[in-house]
Amino acid sequence: MDPTATPRGGNPPGSGGAARPADVLVEAARKGRPGAFEAIVRAHQDRVYAFCSRMLSDREEALDVAQDVFLSAYRSLAGFRGDASLSTWLLKIAANRCLNVIRRRSARAGKETSFSGIGGGEDGDLPFEPPGRDEDRPDRIVEERELGAILMRALGRIEPEARTLVLLSDVEGLSYEELADAAGLPLGTVKSKLHRARMALRKMLAPAV
């Protein structure tokens, strides 16, 4: 693999997946036009929900949080300045909500519940163990969708803040600047945290990739 290739997939950096027509929708929703906010929800629900689901590894919680994100956005539309794209703004809200949920969850359980639901494992509290050499045969990976599960389990093992950065950057395609804005951190801090998170993921995934 060419190490210089851009790592970002279908989400162009910095775009946040937003299109300018979103601004029109936002303006219409602000004015209370019927259907405008519904169109916004329709356009962004998959992305917001997927982010929450990956952050929380719990579909029910993700659904609740995604709902909360859109309600919060609806109530705060007047304060949306349009500096960031609408999707970036929604993801920022989602990231904060998810981190709150994780903190509450950690406070309740004494430690964060890991991704036991994904991959079907009940070993959420056990140390992360990537598959051994003889377990990562392609046929096995294809058969059990191991890689995706391993990736999600590895994501569940890194710090929630780091997970947020990785998901926003490498899955959602936010730029460093958008990450810094979403995380409320200086650009340099975001870069170094993101790099450490990626390296940690790489270390965990090394036997499998």
Binding site: P7, G9, E38, V41, Y49, L63, F70, L71, L167, R198
Partner: peptide
């Protein structure tokens, strides 16, 4: 190469669809 592949894996995570009830719940609350 490993780091690049890890990032590529992340960016290639399959899209996840929101449950159909999400829209209804949001609009009902609104």
């Amino acid at each position: 190469a490993g780091l690049s592949e890890t990032i590529a894996l992340l960016s290639a995570l399959p899209a996840e669809k929101a449950p159909p009830e999400l829209l209804g719940r949001v609009m009902a609350e609104i």
